[in-house]
Amino acid sequence: MNSIYTYFADIFHGLKSLLIGMSVTGRYFFSPGQIVTQQYPENRKTLKMFDRFKGDLIMPHDANNQHRCTGCGICETNCPNGSIEVISDRIELPDGKKKRIIDKHIYHLGMCTFCSLCVKTCPSDALAWDQTFEHAVFDRSKLTKILNKPGSSIIKDIE
């Protein structure tokens, strides 16, 4: 008698627990206001990332095509993966002093682990993060970027 009782009690307990679970899924099924998915490629124009999002390393240039990079190479030494190469030149100023300017600031996006050490340790705040996130390319060589724009120069008051 007892075993028959437990047999049916188990069946009813099982049915009850299944119905409780179904009530949760059913509630979401009938309330489409709680949908959280985004229509990604369609909402590209309105999709905005957070300000601090680490998308792509950039060197901000002002309206006169001037940047803040002195070519000191601290970002290159601090980078754990060797994804930054700074190629700098020494030029002679009119007053006879020698000054270092950057020739190329090369950034390998494919090797970057987005640890943000370069941005944090840069003494002249020359580097920043961009909020782009669509990084897929068809050729690996396109992931190597030169951050200083052609013909750019350094802002004067930066040492």
Partner: peptide, 24 residues
């Protein structure tokens, strides 16, 4: 996480002695 530290999974937000930047 994304708003404060800029990434979703691999943050590297702590540094020896403190944090990379203040919280948002």
């Amino acid at each position: 996480f994304e708003e404060s530290f800029g990434s979703r999974l691999l943050h590297s937000y702590y540094t020896p002695g403190g944090l990379m930047q203040d919280i948002h």
